[in-house]
Amino acid sequence: MANKDDAALRKHLVEVLTGGHAHATFEQAVKGLPVELQGKVPKGAEHSPWQLLEHLRIAQLDILEFSRDSKHESPQWPEGYWPKEKAPADDKAWDKSVRAFRKDLKAMVALIEDEKTDLFAKIPHGDGQTILREALLAADHNAYHVGQLVLVRRLLGAWN
């Protein structure tokens, strides 16, 4: 049985991955963006909402798979982490990417919540990384790029 500190740490990790608290959540950042703006790069920005969404999805999946699969091979940096296309291929691609992000986030949360997961043990196929480090990396990376997505939406006039 996990001790009280272990349970508290797991709870805090899940909250930092999913809760928002000090910043917009992923759900808020992707909700209600008009299809015609998903592929637009506003003046002063480097990426479209689509490129940011796909980058979030690809990077989170890479962190998740690295955390749980010794055979996982990461994409080439940086080109493998960013889509070349500014816009989704079709009207369904945005929702498909959002669903995939949610699914992978749910899997990362399940890994963290699993009491059999030693958050502090070094990942055998890594270079000193732990599940704790990977969870914090995912949370930090997601928060950063969700913030970018909010900024791009503001520049496009599509943020409340």
Rank of each mutant, 00 (worst) to 15 (best):
I131L: 12
E54H: 04
G19C: 09
V150P: 01
G128E: 10
N142T: 15
N160H: 04
S74W: 03
S97E: 11
F101V: 15
T130G: 00
R57D: 02
G157C: 06
P49K: 05
K103V: 08
S74R: 15
I63N: 01
R153T: 07
V41F: 01
I131W: 09
K31L: 12
N142I: 15
K86E: 13
E113V: 05
A138V: 14
R68Y: 03
I58A: 02
L119K: 03
Q28F: 01
K43I: 12
A121R: 12
L151D: 14
K106D: 14
L137P: 03
T25C: 04
V98R: 03
W50H: 06
D62R: 04
K11P: 00
T117K: 09
A24R: 07
Q129E: 14
I123K: 02
Q51N: 05
A107Q: 12
D6G: 02
I112R: 06
L61K: 12
D95T: 11
A24K: 07
W159Q: 10
H47Q: 04
I123S: 01
L119S: 05
K84P: 00
L37I: 09
L9N: 03
G126L: 10
H141F: 06
G44I: 13
L137T: 15
V30N: 02
L37Q: 13
F120D: 11
S67P: 11
R57N: 07
P75N: 04
N3S: 03
V30F: 05
L56W: 06
A7G: 00
L132I: 13
A135I: 11
F66Q: 09
D127S: 09
K43Q: 12
R10Y: 02
A158D: 15
M1G: 07
K4S: 08
D5G: 00
S70Y: 08
A121V: 11
M108L: 15
Y81E: 11
V150E: 02
T25Q: 08
D62P: 02
L105E: 10
D95N: 12
L33R: 05
D118W: 06
Q76V: 15
I58E: 03
P88C: 03
R153C: 06
L33T: 13
L33K: 08
G32I: 09
V152R: 00
K86M: 13
H47N: 08
G44R: 06
S97N: 06
H23I: 10
E65I: 05
R102I: 12
L119Q: 02
G126R: 10
A29P: 05
E113H: 01
D90E: 03
P34K: 08
